[in-house]
Each structure stands twice: as C-alpha cells, then as structure tokens.
C-alpha cells in the first residue's frame, strides 16, 4: 500500500526534477554545429570554456552578491520573524498575512515599482533633492546596490517564514530558564535562542541564496547591461548566445555547488532536528 501511495510523488519527481536535470547534463556534454545547433556528439568544449576567468569572475560576483543579500535577509528577517513568533496568536496571523501580501502582486510589477522609486528622477532622488540632502540625483538604479535591493525585497518573505516557524516552536520557558540561571538577555540569545532556531535560519538562508544566485530577471531589470550575473549569462546562452551546451554546463556547475551546500547544511542540522 505504502509503495502505491508513493507512485505519484516518484513520477512527479522523476518528470519534473530528475529528467530535466539529466537532459541538462546530457546537453552540457554535447557538441554544436557551426550555426549553434546542438549535435548529439560527446564534447568537453563547454566545460573548457568555463576555464575562461571572465566567467569565473561573474560566478564569484554572483555568489558574493547573493551572499550579501542572504546576510541582509537573515539579519532583517530574524527580528521580524522573532517578533511575529512571540506575539499573541491573534496578531501572528495578521502579521503573517502582511508578510505574504506582496505575493499577491506580480513579481514584475513589484520590480518595476522599485525601478520607479530608484531611478534618477524617481521618488527617492526627488525627495532627497527636495530636502536638500543632495544637489544632484544619486545613481541608484542600474547598480549592484539596486540588484541587492531587488533581491532582498523579493526574498525577504522567504526568510521570515522558516525562521518564524522555528521561533514559534521555541518553548518560552527555555528563555526563562536561561534567565533564571543567570544569563543576561544577550547571553540567552546566543546560548539558547540562536542554537534552537538555527535550523530555521539555515533553511531561510538557503531559500534566499540558492534561487538568488541563478536569478536573472532582477539583474536584467535593475542591474542594467553592465551588472551581469551568472543567471544572465546562462539565460543568454539559451537565447541570443545560441550555445546550449555552455549554458547547460554552467547550470551543472551551479547545481553541483548547491547540492554540496545543501548536503552540508542538512548534515549539520538534520542530525539535530532528528533529536527534537
């Protein structure tokens, strides 16, 4: 019976997770003809192109930008999630709905809204000039800073939710116990709250880091042509670049990176999560 019930899930995973990734893997090792058409012939050309340091630079820049965005998301998300998790049940639901409201609006619309806010004649610059904080408009849009804002804004709800889930499970008497045993609030945070909410924090960090490394829409719209990320490069290979094997190879590299990261995170936290 159990086996039968697992069939839909296995089929689903096979069709939508395993199969696409296998196709990606096969493409990465294929050759191209002169017009960029993929030909089913074994080739390592795509991977040799990876050795080009300009791609490595873009990859590292993407990882760094996502790393910074992830850090900001966790630093901003944790206090919010903690606050929501500790208020009364009545308020928790209302606040969680507020966190999720942005999901009701198209992602593109929200990103364009940020562009309007950030551009030279946008709201922020206008306000700063009006109050004479600055004389000339700041260059906000089409910078790494703009991309960072875009990523943080898009992924913050994904950080709040898993952290909230682990804060909400936290037994308040544990904090009282720490305080009773002589721990000042900061000490209680480091020794009790942080270790016990770590699974939520790790999940939150992965939810931001992994999708944002491969993300291209925000970089496209808010980063401009100069601020390419690895996601844009990959997208380009399947589009104008007409180099599917290279795009696939980049995808395989990212995927391997994420799997390594994920298995490390799961190994560390999975063991503890089992004991709760």
């Amino acid at each position: 019976m159990g086996v039968v019930l697992a069939v839909p899930l296995v089929l689903w995973l096979f069709a939508l997770v395993i199969l696409p990734n296998l196709i990606l893997l096969v493409y990465a090792f294929c050759d191209r003809d002169d017009f960029g058409q993929v030909v089913p012939k074994f080739s390592l050309e795509a991977f040799t192109r990876l050795a080009d340091t300009s791609y490595l630079k873009i990859l590292l820049r993407s990882l760094a930008l996502s790393g910074v965005a992830t850090t900001i998301c966790v630093l901003v998300g944790f206090p919010v999630a903690y606050f929501i998790g500790r208020t009364s049940a009545k308020w928790q639901n209302k606040l969680l709905i507020l966190v999720m409201i942005p999901f009701w609006i198209s992602f593109l619309v929200r990103t364009y809204a940020w562009m309007i806010l950030l551009r030279s004649e946008g709201l922020i610059n206008a306000l700063l000039q009006y109050t004479h904080v600055i004389a000339k408009p700041l260059e906000l849009l089409y910078t790494d800073f703009a991309v960072l804002i875009g990523i943080v804004y898009a992924y913050l709800p994904f950080t709040i939710l898993p952290i909230y889930a682990s804060v909400e499970k936290l037994d308040p008497s544990l904090m009282e116990a720490a305080s009773n045993l002589g721990a000042r609030p900061l000490r209680t945070f480091w020794s009790v709250i942080l270790p016990l909410t770590r699974p939520g924090i790790v999940a939150a960090a992965l939810f931001v880091f992994i999708p944002s490394v491969g993300m291209f829409a925000i970089a496209d719209l808010m980063g401009g042509a100069r601020n390419q990320l690895v996601g844009n490069v990959i997208q380009n290979q399947f589009g104008q670049g007409r180099n599917w094997p290279f795009g696939a190879a980049l995808g395989v590299v990212l995927l391997t990176l994420f799997l390594a990261l994920l298995s490390w995170a799961l190994k560390k936290d999975g063991e503890e999560a089992l004991h709760r």
């Binding site: 544990l174 720490a178 270790p195």
Partner: peptide, 11 residues
C-alpha cells in the same frame, strides 16, 4: 527555579 516542564535545553 525547577520548572514544571523542566525546561531543559534540548540542544
């Protein structure tokens, strides 16, 4: 204080 739920640190 010895808590009713003991409140031992699970980690």
């Amino acid at each position: 204080l010895v808590f009713q739920s003991y409140a031992l640190f699970p980690h």
